[in-house]
Design a protein around this nucleic acid. Structure first.
Lengths: 133, 133
DNA sequence: GGCGGATCCGGGTATATACACGCATCAAGA
DNA sequence: TCTTGATGCGTGTATATACCCGGATCCGCC
């Protein structure tokens, strides 16, 4: 029974399920929720180094680097160099901006669905609880 | 701002963090929470086929298969064949049982810590909310 | 006994994610 | 200017996880 009460396992299960909601909604654009979210962060911090971005999204730098490379391959961002030759500087491409425009309402839709299903009160509770972990 | 309110991103973040709690606690045993949980499920269903196990833990069969292979390599489970030659039948080894014995109190510790931090009421709320997603 | 559909698994491929290592670059001090 | 330590990255490796495909096996029906 311990498996049915393990906070970690339940979180993982919920995360997989919720991820699929967003992924399905964004599928027409060819991006998943992780990529979409990363893109949003890049736009907000642009131009930004891998290290700074990783810090912001609280992911390992190497993880962000690999994810960014996928976005680059898709033509959604450009990876260049700053004055500091060590730095990989990320900037969004027009195509990347387009994805953000088109994706926004799709993202909103899923977000709204979830809040409608839970109710605003519980949705808020959930966010609070997740932050307290 | 949308990134700070995205249910999916917040869930992922929380999952990573909480996973690390369990992983650190179980580290002395050389297993992580995913492996520990899978082992628990195998013990409960033993002897069990990959397909049945995957169904139980709500993961893709191929995922469970690969995870099981790791457990086998660690000597915690044995992967054999049933009468149906197609079936991969999983059974726990003595070493696997030992890990479960030793891990139980460690798992309890993390679980208690989390509930202490949140309070029983909120911990319960969290589980309920995760189930509603 | 033999064929076709159903079932079970393994492996290929792709993203998510972390940690450790090694290389290049930078910056500060001798 | 040269040495050193700090910083920024990329890659290797490992687990988590999914989807798809192909091969093996099983089973029911002819």
């Amino acid at each position: 029974m311990s498996n049915d009460t393990c906070h970690c396992i339940l979180l993982r299960k919920a995360t997989r399920k919720v991820s699929s909601y967003y992924d399905e909604a964004l599928a027409p654009l060819g991006v998943n929720i992780g990529q979409f979210s990363l893109l949003r962060n890049i736009r907000r911090m642009e131009p930004v180094s891998l290290t700074d971005l990783a810090h912001k999204v609280e992911l390992d730098r190497s993880t962000v680097g690999r994810n960014a490379k996928v976005l680059e391959r898709m033509g959604l961002i450009a990876i260049g160099h700053g004055e500091d030759q060590r730095e990989a500087v990320l900037t969004i491409t027009p195509k990347g901006r387009e994805i953000l425009e088109k994706g926004a309402p799709l993202w909103d839709g899923v977000q709204d669905d979830i809040e409608a299903r839970l109710g605003h009160e519980k949705a808020r509770q959930l966010q609070d609880l997740l932050a307290e972990l």
